[in-house]
Structures are given as structure tokens and as C-alpha cells.
Design a protein around this nucleic acid. Structure first.
Lengths: 231, 231
DNA sequence: CAGTACATCTCGCGA
DNA sequence: TCGCGAGGTGTACTG
């Protein structure tokens, strides 16, 4: 990895066009040829970048650029598309390189997959007497997160979200429409389950006869604590 | 901005939990207290990070950590939430700081707003004899991208996307439902226009009587080339 | 401030 | 490889 702090301007041409006026920025060149242009603010998203795989060639500026104060031009070309990033460097303030090696990668816990596993194990949170049919029940338009049966034997389709939004209600509605055409399953009830359900999503869901269920992930994980896998 | 290359392990606790095993990485500390942990690969997304506003405190390791080889612990705390990033540093290989100042920011061209402007100017791409009523036609549930009239005088609602997805079809469907309740506008036809339309979205749209239109942005921009505004 | 829609989204999973 | 959905999404804009 190479880290350069330089006064530069940047132009991107590809899926769109973008331009960064002259300023001091961090240029990060990774081992796979990708380049990130960071400012001293914003979030983790760079001001501009080139995704890997890419190749970076440093060339001399043409006469016009040289007269404008450009000392060096980085031509970053995507290997797969014709996306191009052109960095015109006026002055380099710092330039360090270091070999980082391959990273072992991130271990996550607490994403939707974990919620789904926990809810499948604690299926009674849907209501007394519920039984699991299966997780990721495949349909023509995508997988239903959880398919279950309630105490009366009726089919229940569960859409699971970390944050319950209108989109999730729409998604569940499409599944319910489809599932209810299947005489072996119909009638199918819908449950919209999330750690947090937005008011507008709740209104829309209940208007469509969908039950809303707020999940307490900490409590569910607490029950599961016998196998705390990470820590 | 401070750039440290160090052998470290990282733990994040917040909306989820995540752990990074010991390895050599880049630690970027920005002026607003945000911290980015980058490896020498992947795309622009860091392995882990803390969003601003945040505060970074470097503390001495406790006895257990010190025996494990930790020389320094960075405690990064979000100012708004109780998200926390803990970086246990074993060895620092490089440590440079530089003042970057405020960035003038990115100028873009070719996003949905540009597509919308071009389609409004080249409204005949909807079909011969179409006339523009207006862009961003406001309704109670949000703005319709383009409202037009076809050769026969019927109202046409256009939903515009860079990439046509099912969500976009749902959005247009909601607009059409609402617009068709207005006797001054009804009957309203729907056109789903995008640079690329996903097969499932196309099926759903046509099933609902919505016309799909694939847009060639380069061709549309070509027509508009008399005022290439950026370069 | 919240809510909404877009993104050069990125990333991971499954067919 | 492609399609699809999730994300600690981020980001801009609107009310």
C-alpha cells in the first residue's frame, strides 16, 4: 500500500463524470491497483476512487498541464470497464509505502442472518403453538425469510428486517400474494418482524392485515447465550 | 489527518459486533475524530470504521493485553450513539500526520437528475407526439419524475431510474393508483424508463400494464452535446 | 430534525 | 457469472 498526501485535482470518467478541484488530499494506492482519494472529513466513502482490478501509471504532464503547475499525472485505468481516474498532482507532501499482506478478514455477529436463526429457534415468539416449516422458503420471486404454521394450522409467512421499513412491507405483500395462490398453503398470514418498525411501515402493514412484531435481539441472544460463538 | 500503519486487532460493538484478528493494517484518523481501518485490498469500504462525530483516546493496555503483546489501545467512541471501536496495537510501523484543510467537494454529472433533464428535453423518446406537462410533479405521496401527455391527449406518468428495479415499479404503481383517482388526469398511463431494466422488474411492470422504456444515456447526452457543461 | 430516494453504492449468497 | 437483497450502508434533498 502506498500513501501519498498531495495537492491535486481529480477527474473521473466512467459510469458518470465527476471532478474534484485542486486541494490537498490523501491518495491511497492499494496492492490490487485500486486508488482511493480521501479528504479529512466525510465518512468512510472516499471523495473519488477506482475499484479493483485497475492499473495505475504515473506519466509526465503535457505542456499545458505543466504550465498550470502539474508535476505528475496518475492515470488509473479499470481493468474490466473503461472507467478512468485521472489525478493531476501539483505537489507531493508525503509519500510512504508499506507491505500489508493479506488480511484475515472480518467476523460479524448480529446481522439479519443471526436474527433469522434465532427466530427460527425461538419460533414461539410468533405466538403460542407456532411451528417452523422452514427458513428461506424459495418462491419464484425470491425467498420468504421464515415460513411457519400457527396453532390453528394456518400458514404464516414472516418477513424479517433489522429495521422495518415500507420496502419490507411491500416485499412481504408480494410474497403473500404469491403464496395465497397456492391452494396447499392458502390462506397465508403475514408477520412483519423487525428490531424496530417505522410508524409508516406499521400503518401500511396493519392496513393490509399484516401483523407487526418487534423483536428484542439482546433478549433473543440472551436465550442463546449457551453458545456465545464470538467472545 | 493521521496515518498509522500498525499490526493490530480491532473490535467493534454497536449496531452489531465485529472482530478483526491480528494483522498489519492502515489506520486513518480524520480531523472529525472518525477512524478508518483499511487493508491492502477490497474496494473503498474499510474493514471497519467509526463514523463522525467521534473521539479517539489512546490509552495504555491493561495487564492481560500487555502480556499478549499490546503496546497501545485506541478507544474510539461515537459522540452520538454508544458505538465503540477498540483498536489494540501491537506494533507501529509508520505514523505520519498532515493538515489537509477543508475540501471543495465533488462535482458530478450523469446522475438521475441529468437523465431527467435530458428526457424532459427529448420528450419524444416516450413516443411520437408526446408533450411535457412538468418534471417533479408533486403528489401527496411524493414527486412523479415526469408527467406528460401522449399524442391522444392521455396523461402519462414516467418513473425514471438509472437501473430499473422492482422497487421502482412499486413506486410508479403507487403514483398511478393515486393519479387515476384524479378525474382531471385519469386515465393515466405509466412508463418505466431506465438505462437498464431488470427482467423481473420488466415482467412485473408489463403485468401491470406499465410500458418499459430503455434509455441510452450516451445517445441522449450526444444530442445535448452543444452544452457540455463540465469539460 | 426526520423521512425519502439515489448510489461509480459495496458485499455476500445462491442459482 | 448474474441476479437479488442487506448494509454499522452514506449522501443529498425536502418538509
Amino acid at each position: 500500500m502506498r500513501l501519498v498526501i498531495a495537492r491535486c485535482s481529480v477527474d473521473y470518467v466512467g459510469r458518470l463524470r465527476a471532478h474534484l478541484p485542486l486541494a490537498v488530499r490523501l491518495l491511497m494506492v492499494k496492492a490490487d491497483g485500486s486508488v482511493l482519494v480521501h479528504s479529512d472529513g466525510g465518512s468512510y466513502k472516499p471523495l473519488n476512487w477506482m475499484s479493483p482490478p485497475a492499473t495505475m501509471r504515473s506519466v509526465a504532464p503535457d505542456e499545458t498541464d505543466a504550465e498550470a503547475g502539474v508535476t505528475e499525472v496518475w492515470n488509473v485505468q479499470s481493468a474490466k470497464t473503461d472507467d478512468r481516474l485521472i489525478i493531476s498532482i501539483h505537489e507531493r507532501f508525503s509519500d510512504v509505502s508499506h507491505d500489508l499482506g493479506v488480511d484475515p478478514g472480518l467476523i460479524k455477529d448480529g446481522v439479519e442472518a443471526d436474527l433469522q436463526r434465532l427466530l427460527a429457534e425461538q419460533i414461539n415468539r410468533l405466538g403460542e403453538g407456532h411451528t417452523l416449516i422452514r427458513r428461506e422458503y424459495m418462491t419464484a420471486i425470491g425467498p420468504v425469510d421464515i415460513l411457519a404454521r400457527d396453532a390453528s394450522g394456518a400458514t404464516v409467512a414472516v418477513e424479517l428486517k433489522r429495521r422495518g421499513d415500507i420496502d419490507g412491507v411491500e416485499q412481504l405483500t408480494r410474497y403473500l400474494e404469491l403464496l395465497n395462490r397456492d391452494p396447499l398453503l392458502a390462506p397465508v398470514k403475514g408477520i412483519f418482524a423487525a428490531q424496530q418498525i417505522k410508524p409508516q411501515a406499521r400503518v401500511l402493514a396493519e392496513d393490509r392485515g399484516i401483523t407487526c412484531l418487534t423483536l428484542d435481539y439482546d433478549a433473543m441472544r440472551g436465550v442463546d447465550d449457551r453458545d456465545s460463538r464470538l467472545f
